[in-house]
Computed example of a mutant assay.
Amino acid sequence: MDPSLALLAQLFDSLPLGVVVLDAAGRVIIYNRAEEALANRQRARVVGRDFFVEVAPCMNVSRLAGEFRKNIGRRPLDVDLEFSFPFMSLDEPRDVRLKLSSFDVAAASYGVLMVEDISAKRSVERMKETLQDLLIHDLKNPLSAILANLGYLDRIRGIRDNHDAVEAISDSVQAARRLQAMLLNLLDISRLETNSLPLARDLVDLDAMLAAAVEENAALARMHGSALALGPACGLRASVDPAVLRRALGNLIENAVRHAPHVTVAGRRERGAVVLEVVDDGPGVPAGMRDTIFEKYTQVQADGRATAAYNRGLGLTFVRLAAHAHGGDASVDCPAGGGSVFRIALPAPAP
């Protein structure tokens, strides 16, 4: 073995994840201790054998064989997969992450497979998703009852004549609807992440949708002392799920009115795309946070630092996933003069 490879073999033996190094023909030349333990195979029985044919011929790993044989020595390899792997020594398959990359030593090309057992992590995630679904289901019914009873109180004449009572009911309805939106975000984020939320697409008048979103959030804007306005008509239509897209717009508007004194909602066409914008004159989003802010449970504090919160920070995650489900994307820019421009870009319908 080349001295450089021998040094690598010693280094790989100290790693906590499985490492398999292959020569250009796909034969195993390094098989570290962690992979021995994970696969329950001694390296002496594996080294020198064709990894894709003799060592791990299962369907999931075989998908890498073509990529390896086609590109090794020609272009860098970079493949990252997660799947359930049936280890022969275990009663049940394990969830693994497999990363295939490549390197060169002394003009020879080699492939390296990093194998990580993520079964415990996936098990915890599945438990969290199950608990989340149960909580959402259990909270939806009492919340619907709260809204129904508030609506009943609002229709009682004696209460309608009391300004303070009417205002209190209105505030309670808005709070209950925001809680309802949070629950729907939690539920539908999970569905969007697994592509299990079917979109009920229709050709929608975007001016009407933007106007409805502004009207729905007018009370919330007043509560936060923010002036919410509708921009010029765009005259555009798009094939979207109106319920999903209005919720995404609502999330952007709610986020803006909480942080800015003036917010404008508008639509326009831009290079073959339909763009919906929520523009504010708030503190803006730091450059390093403009992508991270769309991740789960991430919020930006007034000083620009990112924080993780357990029960908040899902609104923008839903916005981006909803945009992706429609074949588009969500982003944020901050002009030099201050403020933020949150955008949902969607494919424009064929003329």
Rank of each mutant, 00 (worst) to 15 (best):
V96C: 00
V115M: 04
G26H: 05
P283G: 04
E67F: 13
V332C: 05
D50F: 10
D202N: 08
S226K: 07
P351T: 06
L143Y: 00
D104G: 06
L210Y: 08
D303Y: 02
R45F: 09
N251S: 08
V279Q: 09
E116F: 09
G235K: 02
M182G: 13
P242M: 05
G18K: 02
N141A: 15
R43A: 11
R320Y: 02
V173Q: 12
G66K: 08
D280M: 06
G284C: 05
S239G: 09
F12Y: 15
R49G: 03
V112I: 15
M223G: 12
L228A: 02
M289A: 15
P3C: 09
N185A: 08
F12K: 07
D171R: 13
S84K: 07
D280V: 01
F294R: 08
P198Y: 05
A348K: 05
M182N: 14
P93C: 03
A145W: 07
R271Y: 05
R201G: 10
D2R: 05
V19G: 09
V105H: 11
M114W: 11
T317C: 07
L131Q: 15
C334E: 01
E125F: 11
C234V: 03
D13A: 11
S84V: 08
R312N: 13
A221N: 01
C58R: 12
P261S: 07
V319Q: 05
V53S: 10
M127I: 12
V124C: 00
K128D: 14
Q42F: 00
L139S: 15
A25W: 03
R155C: 07
T292H: 13
F68E: 04
V166E: 10
A336G: 09
D78G: 11
V20I: 13
I29S: 09
A176L: 08
N60Y: 12
D78M: 09
A56H: 02
G26D: 08
A229Y: 06
L199P: 04
V20M: 08
A330W: 08
E54I: 01
D50I: 10
V28E: 04
S123K: 14
V28P: 04
G284I: 03
S226H: 02
N71Q: 12
G328T: 05
E35A: 00
A229V: 14
R43T: 01
G26T: 03
A345C: 11
L81C: 08
T292E: 15
F87D: 03
P261R: 02
A213N: 01
E270R: 12
P57T: 06
A39E: 10
A306N: 09
V257L: 06
L17S: 13
G225N: 06
D280N: 11
